[in-house]
């Protein structure tokens, strides 16, 4: 009893709302539109948003430390265009993937180091990072480069059929690259819950001074968090090139906002210290379902943006109100817990 109760502390309220919201939206779509209710609609949320989810998981690490990373969209785009460029030059696909992932890590480490050692604002540093990477995209190629590599193609086109019944609605397909997302998700879950580094990430977001005085390695934790964010963005970029089979430097403009929105809608506090990667994935699924509904309704796609912004606003304000309440409660305290 005690254990189940603890699961629903204040922090998880927004996640709970999100899950309920997702179910409601899915139900709404199913009732309103023909062919909406199917496993395939559900699985497509992953097929279409895997790259966003991967990048979102990465940025969640940074958000939990209390930072922000808005460079990820450019990193995704750069990874895409640079891998396409390298493949075009005949570099083997595994080497290409390795190279772009390492570049991702380097970008993250550099940003994290600037932020930590020189106490610069994460927002400014990663905004500069965003410009830098976006600029480099165009330096590599101004035009879209198609990808013809067989490995990339096999990743892009192969899928696993999933059947839950004989009805048409009960079957769907998952592309191979979605399993990368699942792997990232599981590893992140484990890291955040069961490793020292993961717990340090939370401690850092709770109170950086305390974390330092408790003897935690703040520098390494913070820089690693930014490195993970950029690494995931690069990995997201690889998945994105599987998805599109092309690299184009102007792709994914503003995607960092989608990733941040996913995290926030999934219950991550932008003030740091609270957040889960599962929440981020669900946040991205909500965005996906809004997109799907907007498509079914044949609305202007910009409605998606506006709806997401409204949701984002709602969640941020709700979080804030909860926090204000908590602050007020604090005055009373629980000093009587002393026996």
């Amino acid at each position: 009893m005690e254990k189940t109760k603890k699961k629903f502390q204040i922090n998880n309220i927004s996640l709970l709302i999100t899950v309920v919201l997702f179910v409601l939206m899915f139900a709404f779509g199913s009732v309103k539109y023909d062919n909406f209710f199917s496993i395939s609609t559900f699985l497509n949320l992953f097929n279409d948003n895997a790259y966003l989810m991967i990048a979102g998981i990465g940025v969640t690490f940074v958000l939990i430390t209390g930072g922000i990373d808005i460079s990820i969209s450019s990193t995704v785009a750069f990874t895409g265009v640079f891998s396409a460029y390298l493949l075009q030059k005949g570099v083997p696909s595994f080497a290409v993937i390795l190279i772009v992932l390492v570049i991702g890590i380097i970008v993250g480490v550099a940003q994290g180091a600037l932020i930590h050692y020189f106490n610069m604002q994460p927002f400014i540093v990663t905004l500069a990072g965003q410009f830098l990477m976006r600029g480099l995209c165009v330096v590599v190629s101004e035009a879209s480069i198609p990808i013809t590599d067989p490995f990339f193609k096999s990743m892009a086109l192969n899928k696993v059929a999933i059947k839950l019944g004989s009805a048409k609605a009960a079957s769907g397909k998952l592309y191979y690259y979605v399993f990368i997302l699942l792997a990232v998700l599981l590893i992140s879950l484990y890291v955040l819950k069961y490793t020292k580094f993961g717990r340090n990430v939370y401690a850092l977001g709770g109170n950086e001074t305390s974390a330092k005085l408790m003897g935690l390695n703040v520098a390494r934790t913070k820089i690693c968090a930014y490195a993970i964010s950029s690494f995931c963005a690069a990995l997201g970029g690889v998945v994105f090139s599987f998805y599109t089979l092309a690299g184009y430097g102007l792709q994914n403009m503003g995607m960092e906002l989608d990733a941040l929105s996913s995290a926030v809608i999934g219950g991550t506090l932008l003030t740091g210290g609270v957040g889960t990667v599962v929440g981020t994935v669900i946040g991205a699924m909500i965005q996906g379902i809004i997109q799907t509904i907007v498509t079914y309704q044949n609305l202007n796609t910009w409605w998606t943006k506006v709806t997401i912004a409204a949701l984002l606003c709602f969640f941020i304000v709700v979080q804030r109100i909860i926090a204000i309440r908590a602050e007020k409660m604090k005055g009373k305290g629980e000093s009587d817990s002393y026996k």
Binding site: R199, N200, N207, T209, M214, L216, G273
Partner: peptide
């Protein structure tokens, strides 16, 4: 100098 967002137990053992 502890972290408000972590559990009491974790605050004792973190690190």
């Amino acid at each position: 100098n502890l972290c408000p967002n972590l559990s009491v137990a974790e605050n004792i053992y973190i690190g």
